[in-house]
Design a protein around this nucleic acid. Structure first.
Lengths: 218, 218
DNA sequence: TTTAATTTATGATCCAGATCATACTTAAAT
DNA sequence: ATTTAAGTATGATCTGGATCATAAATTAAA
């Protein structure tokens, strides 16, 4: 029964979740140099909502964004997290289907909305860019396939172990995982209390360390 | 605790699940005309397994294939279903990551394995083909996002209602949905018994019709 | 530095859906 | 036409994780 208001969502971490494959510098430069003007969004601002018809693709010049679906009870599910130099919203645009999710600025962000026709032109003019897009989409599919299998088949502990292992990929040994239990819950479909208990258990089993409640990679 | 052996998986239906976007005729023709020779797979044959390193992309000349992940207990989750004129296995190849899933012929099939380098060449030589691939991947992402939200947040009845509505898209009114309860279970992460009870309930509520156990779209 | 707001923590209860068991129906194979 | 296998059906029990409740520890704000 969580509500949408946003203030507590302050991802500092999760630098790379679903979108390791960066745009090449060239494309970014192209965007920045050309006449696309970024829009500023404050923490918690909604960039688009489910049901809206897509007209643009969004490039994050700076900042961070989370994509969430919300069910009738207000429970959120984090579909993905996007950060500086990544883009989002392409699938809906390219299929011309209404968005399924909210995207919400997790922190103050500057975002360039590239109109549909311009985006298609970019894809045509820069074949390398198509290739990068294909890889990005592939990567998101990988993540979603993995999570689907987990949500469908695995028990809570397994889910959290898999998810944490995945997120640890971008964390140094001895460093903290900058994700709250609530966020882990919203990514795994579990409840905070359950996640808290499991994280504790994993700590007992020396699969990770806890310091002041922070999750530390061993 | 379902076992892998395959004989009972005889999808006749689900013509279009995740892959509405067909290859353009051109590309198929290109494939069929050129020197790519199809391999024959019998019902139940495994095309690739999780962990294997991808070397090719697979085009289905004829037949049907299901992509499933299997957990330690042997419980399956159907990640996707692919039929004639569709292709599968690209994401792993393009990311050069080992496969996550099994792909198994659901019926006798002829499948063309296109080597990685040839596939990349196709992408370069046929810009339209890249675009189609992008759309195909987008569509799969849509399906997976929808299912993730369902598995994470929704109760059994809601899951089945959503899944059945999705599958009904390709069924005429008064026609049967050619999917077994077990398959619905394997797509929704529920158990057969649960699915059976829910389908019965949906039938009581006149959301669908049952004839000789078959699910009929109203 | 005090107050307020988030986040983490933990125990007690409850229930949706899994599990188990058994039978019936329909379709396929011989 | 008969056997066999696959799928559907249904009741009884059990359990993992949700829910509820309450508090302590961090972190942010005033």
């Amino acid at each position: 029964m969580k509500k949408i208001p946003i203030s507590r969502y302050f991802f500092k971490g999760i630098l790379i979740l679903v979108n390791q494959v960066l745009l090449q510098i060239m494309t970014i430069k192209y965007l920045l140099d050309s006449n696309f003007k970024p829009t500023s969004y404050g923490k918690g601002d909604v960039i688009y909502e489910p049901g809206a018809q897509p007209r643009a693709v969004y490039f994050i010049k700076s900042g961070k964004v989370r994509m969430v679906t919300v069910n009738d009870d207000g429970k959120e599910f984090i579909q993905g997290i996007f950060k500086t130099n990544e883009y989002f919203g392409e699938p809906a645009l390219l299929l011309d289907k209404p968005y399924l999710a909210y995207t919400i600025a997790t922190q103050d962000s500057e975002i360039i909305a590239v109109k549909g026709e311009d985006f298609l032109k970019m894809l045509k003019d820069h074949p390398d860019f198509s290739m990068k897009l294909i890889q990005t989409l592939s990567h998101r599919l990988f993540y979603k396939s993995m999570m689907l299998e987990e949500l469908a088949n695995e028990h809570a502990e397994h889910r959290i172990r898999t998810l944490v292992a995945y997120l640890f990929k971008d964390v140094e040994h001895g460093q903290e995982l900058k994700v709250t239990r609530q966020q882990l819950a919203d990514m795994s479909g579990l409840r905070v209390e359950t996640v808290i208990r499991i994280i504790k258990k994993l700590s007992d089993q020396k699969e990770l360390k806890l310091m002041k409640g922070k999750i530390i990679k061993i």
